[in-house]
Design a binder for these strands. Structure first.
Lengths: 115, 115
DNA sequence: TGAATATATGAACACACAATCATATGAAGG
DNA sequence: CCTTCATATGATTGTGTGTTCATATATTCA
């Protein structure tokens, strides 16, 4: 390996470098998209896409433990992907952002496009 | 915990259950979106978004080792997110799907929307 | 054929993370 | 108050994964 020093296409490198997003933004994008990278979280998001749901219903629908769902919801909340409202003991979660549904749509398109 | 048995909102559960994507599709979506969940891979995708690039240039641009970039490219290729063409010793990679750019756009929007 | 170079790949290691279990919090009802 | 119930949270653990290092592959050129 020696191309660390001898850059093969210098203008290409320079050009692309300047158009790259800030490192900070990349990190935050990765953090956000990581929220979509797990089946349990994806199921939660797909379910909430239909309608507002409480933790217990979510657990039943996606067939996961209450604890697991609760933990994952905490993560999704941290990424501002879901919001909630309390009604007595019950906590209702819903999607917090339209981009969520958009991203899910694109992902599904890609999946289906690859037959 | 007892709501495994006593479903709180029975019709909600039934309704959402039927609208849920197949488990298989969820798995594949998660696999796809996992490709976006790492800063190194995100940088690669953002760079390739500008233009076709060889492995060596990519490594320089995103400041990662050649080996690391090569490994990650293999993963992206497996998800059919990038394609490549060979020209002598040099391998040029480029994005393989328009959905990729779309997903990146949505993610960036979300990030910026959260100030 | 042999040296140089661009990329790929395998093994190993350190670290992140999802699930579980146990327990805490907090609200409603008796 | 005390119990019940819905949800949250902390600790633990096993698994997955990104990086590195070393080496393999493959192509060009002398």
């Amino acid at each position: 390996m020696q191309c660390d020093l001898i850059i093969i296409h210098e203008e290409a490198v320079e050009e692309v470098r300047q158009a790259m997003p800030e490192a900070d933004q990349i990190e935050r994008m990765a953090g956000l998209l990581k929220a979509f990278s797990d089946p349990t979280r994806l199921k939660i998001l797909e379910a909430l896409r239909q309608r507002e749901l409480c933790v217990c219903d979510l657990a039943v629908i996606i067939e996961a433990s209450q604890s697991s769902v609760s933990h994952q919801l905490a993560g999704l909340k941290a990424q501002q992907l879901v919001k909630f409202r309390k009604e007595g003991k019950v906590v209702y979660y819903s999607l917090d952002d339209d981009h969520v549904a958009d991203i899910l749509d694109r992902a599904l398109e890609h999946i289906r496009h690859a037959e």
